[in-house]
Design a protein around this nucleic acid. Structure first.
Length: 749
DNA sequence: ACTCTCACG
DNA sequence: ACGTACGTGAGAGTT
């Protein structure tokens, strides 16, 4: 698709540096086919970080690039295959100057030996944009702003929206909904008219909540909220808005087929109005996600832009209309791609489960965090003073730029061998650890960073996000955010709460249950390696998991040829690093870096590993093979990840796609499995009428808030359901732990 | 809005 | 000859 760039896109840089002219002129001047020049221009400036020393296409120009790559073909190869991001940067930098044309290209005035005369200037013309080509390219590259500009130039689709319909229309409309023509709906901002601001302090929130007596999710404001609105659509271009109350029964009816974009949000919005929602058959956000999991956004406006070439103006009726229109294009694609079962069995039923988890939230002890904050504040100041004393200057330690200046210019510490690709000298932890051997400051900075990070990201941030009504922390799970099928968590992100350092774990102690309750954590033990054993059918690996032995120790024994009883800690940790790296498509370089050993040695380890686990080696190769053939990979449950770069002639892009090809079936299947477990556990909790709340999912772990009286039952239930989600060639193992907070979870069998 | 850094699985 | 594990989200600094 990037070939489109060759044929259709013209990037016009600022006029004083560049000119446009017709293709024949370019060919004449540069002696290369004119359509090639366009790609080179797209790599202008700082974005060419893969060519050390290259001054930027704009200066010494295409000629230098072509020389370095050896041929025009090789140059273009690089240009065309370069990452999306590079394109995005270079194009957006020139946003105002972008033209679209089939007949025009740009060249640079500063190309050595090229003299752009006035006569050439005279040949400059502005061509008509090739809208269709641009639309395809911008969609692919997720240039949503540009896409929007483009779409506005096209005809608006015909629409007939009725505001404030009478109740007769509504009854008529509802009666016509069928499985083939479901009722598409969209909800207005149900919190409109409700105070949105957060409390000044958690204490204040507590007082507010106590005085009001009840704990609604949204606080009542001075002005009563507007009656919530809903938009309904059965036919493209037509939609009706009305008060949600008018369709209360229809929303709750499981037999009235409905379609909505983002059912989880709809469920939560309605739940706050004490409204039921049933009969949702289609969630266009989830359809879009399953079809294109690598797109970063699946919001209604973005999906409408991508799939309908329609930039929404933002109205409620319009949203319902678009949801309906999207169905027509999404549903056939879902069937064609074989995604129906992942949708039906996993994604759609998961949405209400996630809604309940978000609504439940988690409790944190703000007093604990408050005390940690005071302590960290003090420690940070002391650490900073020490750094200033040892370095002889005061500066902003948080600024990588200033820090690099101090370390590498003032203190003259050795710069790392391979640093930045034309960028700033890195001050990342990895680099500072190296420097810590020769100077105090790098070590102090590392310590300062740990304190500062924990304070700003967790200790100070979390209490501010406590909901004033529930007095709990409510994350939002993004169900359509990752390329592999995992969830992500934001606002706050509760999937990256510290655990690896002692100080970090302190923060976990602030995550607590309500009185008379306990926290239960259940995590899948080595699920990705077990899946690797299942997929590869490697006999040794399957055997090891059936024996339920120390898996890393077993690997060490195999790879290093010693008896399991004689495996040292050192050997075990090396084996662990190998096991850790395999699902990521590890390389000798990566392993060497991870273990701090020679690359040669790492390569030997990998060879030894593959000799012992030939089944794994073969599966990795077979998976890459299959990916090359299909240009996509699938999880055990059929979730798809497209791999457009798998056959790229660009080494970097291809290698990346190959690692993705082996990682996604593992990471993605693990995600499918825990999602299924969540659905079954939630369903069983409801069926038994238990008070236990599932509150968090952290990729391979589930967290529950459990009444003491239910503990024994829940332990059995959770383990049973998680371990038996699916039968594989190896057992799935779940570790359980219970505690009075998220830090002091006691693991138990 | 982007870069760098770093928290997690 | 190339660059190097996979997947995320957030805060602070810089532009």
């Amino acid at each position: 698709m990037l070939q489109l760039v060759n044929e259709h896109i013209c990037v016009l840089n600022p006029p004083k540096d560049n000119l446009i002219c017709d293709r024949a002129k370019v060919e004449e001047i540069l002696g290369v086919p004119p359509e090639r020049v366009v790609d080179v221009m797209a790599l202008r400036g700082d974005s060419i970080d893969n060519i050390p020393g290259a001054p930027g296409i704009g200066d010494k120009g295409s000629v230098e690039l072509i020389r370095r790559f050896g041929s025009v073909e090789a140059t273009l190869e690089h240009a065309v295959e370069v990452e999306k991001k590079t394109y995005r940067e270079s194009l957006l930098n020139n946003r105002e100057q972008i033209l679209y044309s089939k007949s025009q290209v740009t060249i640079d005035c500063d190309v050595p030996g090229v003299d752009l005369s006035d006569s050439l200037l005279a040949t400059m013309t502005a061509g008509e944009p090739d809208l269709e080509a641009c639309r395809e390219l911008f969609t692919e590259l997720e240039f949503t702003t540009l896409l929007k500009n483009l779409a506005q130039a096209t005809d608006r689709q015909e629409k007939r929206y009725v505001e404030d319909a009478g109740s007769l229309d509504i009854v008529e409309l509802l009666s016509r909904a069928t499985p083939d023509h479901p009722l598409a709906f969209a909800l207005g901002d149900l919190t409109a008219g409700v105070a949105a601001e957060q409390p000044a302090s958690p204490d204040q929130a507590a007082e507010d909540a106590e005085s009001s007596g009840t704990l609604p999710f949204e606080a009542a404001a001075d002005v009563p909220p507007l009656p919530p609105r809903i938009a309904l659509s059965l036919k493209a271009g037509q939609a009706i808005t009305t008060a949600v109350d008018n369709v209360r029964d229809a929303l709750a009816s499981p037999t009235l087929p409905k379609a909505v974009h983002d059912s989880k949000s709809a469920l939560r919005l309605l739940a706050r109005q004490a409204l039921q929602l049933a009969g949702v058959r289609h969630d266009t956000m989830l359809y879009s996600y399953l079809l294109d999991p690598t797109y970063s956004s699946h919001s209604l406006p973005e999906v409408a832009l991508r799939r309908l070439n329609f930039p929404p103006a933002g109205g409620l009726a319009e949203a319902a209309d678009l949801t309906g229109r999207l169905l027509a294009t999404l549903v056939p694609d879902i069937e064609r791609e074989g995604l129906r079962s992942v949708y039906e069995e996993i994604e759609l039923p998961l949405a209400p489960v996630l809604a309940r988890m978000e609504e439940a939230g988690v409790k944190i002890d703000c007093d604990i965090l408050g005390r940690i904050s005071v302590r960290l504040e003090h420690d940070c100041e002391r650490k900073a003073a020490e750094i200033f004393r040892h370095s002889g200057v005061e500066f902003n330690i948080n600024s990588p730029r200033q820090l690099a200046e101090v370390l590498f210019e003032k203190l003259n510490l050795p710069k790392p061998i391979k640093y930045g690709k034309g960028k700033m000298v890195s001050t990342a932890a990895e680099v500072l650890e190296e420097l810590a051997e020769s100077h105090d400051v790098p070590r102090l900075v590392l310590e300062y960073r740990e304190l500062a990070k924990l304070k700003s990201t967790y200790v100070d941030a979390l209490p501010a996000l406590v909901n004033r009504c529930t007095r709990r922390l409510h994350t939002t799970f993004n169900q359509a955010g990752t390329a592999t099928g995992r969830l992500s968590s934001n606002n706050p992100n509760l999937q990256n709460i510290p655990i690896r350092t002692e100080l970090g774990r302190e923060i976990r102690a602030a995550f607590i249950p309500e009185p008379e309750r306990l926290l239960l954590s259940a995590d899948y033990s080595q699920i990705e390696l077990r899946l690797l054993a299942h997929f590869s059918q490697d006999a040794r690996m399957i055997e090891a998991f059936h024996n339920d032995a120390d898996f890393h120790k077993a690997t060490a024994a195999e790879v290093f040829g010693v008896m399991p009883s004689l495996v040292s800690d050192e050997l075990r940790s090396r084996a662990k690093a190998i096991n850790f790296g395999i699902p990521y498509g590890l390389s000798d370089f990566g392993l060497a870096q991870n273990l701090g050993i020679e690359r040669r040695e790492a390569a030997e380890y990998i060879n030894a590993y593959f000799a012992k686990y030939a089944g794994v080696r073969d599966w990795l190769e077979a998976t890459r093979q299959q990916a090359r053939r299909d240009q996509k990979v699938r999880t055990l449950f059929g979730r798809v990840r497209p791999l457009p770069d798998i056959n790229s002639r660009n080494y970097q892009a291809r290698s990346f796609a190959e690692r993705t090809a082996v990682n996604t079936p593992l990471q993605g299947t693990a995600a499918d499995i825990i999602k299924l477990a969540m659905i079954r556990i939630d369903s069983e909790l409801q069926r038994r009428g238990l008070k236990t709340q599932m509150t968090l999912q952290v990729h391979d772990e589930l967290v529950f808030e459990v009444p003491e009286s239910e503990l024994d039952q829940i332990r059995r239930l959770v383990r049973e359901l998680m371990e038996n989600v699916i039968e594989l060639r190896v057992p799935l193992k779940v570790d359980l732990g219970v505690g009075a907070n998220w830090r002091d979870i006691k693991k138990q069998r």
